[in-house]
Amino acid sequence: MTKFLLSIHVLAAIVAIGPVTVASSMFPSAVRRAVGEHGTERDVAVLRTLHRICRVYAGVGVVVPVFGFATASSLGVLGDTWLTVSIVLTAMAAGVLGLLVLPRQQRILAAIPHPGPDERAPSRLAMHTGLFNLLWAAVTVLMIVRPGSTTGA
């Protein structure tokens, strides 16, 4: 059962978190193209699609920690420090995505027909997206390396 849970956890991370990291990373440069001198309606449609990918897969991504907890429980590592740090980093990544990245994407999309005074919004969004991606990279490393783990890795 542990191998099944771990497999679902890893597959969910790849399928759910991967698209969010890619789409959110593409969004700031797509904004610059869409609001640039040669921006087209297609560029705006790309932005809407990238935002939708981020929103939908962020929702799907909830299964990652659910199966993560189930896997950790079956492995008996719920109290391990590496897992606690991973949980905190995962919560931080979810917070950055839900409180900073997705709302800023939404505000930028709402302002596209009438560009607002905040020309630095794509740069700030890129910074928050980079933080989100960095947090997920740290979680991934912790899941692979598992410092102090006694599970044989």
Rank of each mutant, 00 (worst) to 15 (best):
P65N: 05
S123Y: 14
V44D: 08
M1L: 10
I112Y: 08
A138I: 14
V96S: 09
A58T: 10
H9P: 01
S123T: 07
R42L: 15
V145M: 05
I14D: 04
Q106S: 11
V141L: 15
S149R: 03
Q106E: 15
A12Q: 03
I87G: 04
L100G: 07
V46L: 12
A138C: 11
V141D: 00
G36E: 11
Q106D: 14
F67M: 08
V46R: 14
I8C: 05
L5R: 09
I112H: 09
G116T: 03
L142D: 02
V88D: 03
P117L: 08
V63E: 10
H51N: 10
Q106R: 12
G95H: 01
A45C: 05
S25C: 09
H128Y: 14
K3R: 10
G68L: 04
V20F: 15
D43Q: 11
R55L: 15
V46E: 15
S29A: 13
I87K: 04
L134F: 11
F132N: 06
V22W: 14
T151N: 00
R146T: 01
P113C: 07
M1G: 06
G39A: 08
G68K: 08
E119D: 09
H114R: 12
A58G: 14
I17V: 15
T129D: 09
R32I: 00
E37Y: 08
G148W: 04
T90I: 10
A153Q: 05
R120S: 14
G116K: 05
V35G: 09
L83C: 06
A110I: 08
T140D: 00
A70G: 06
T140A: 15
T49V: 07
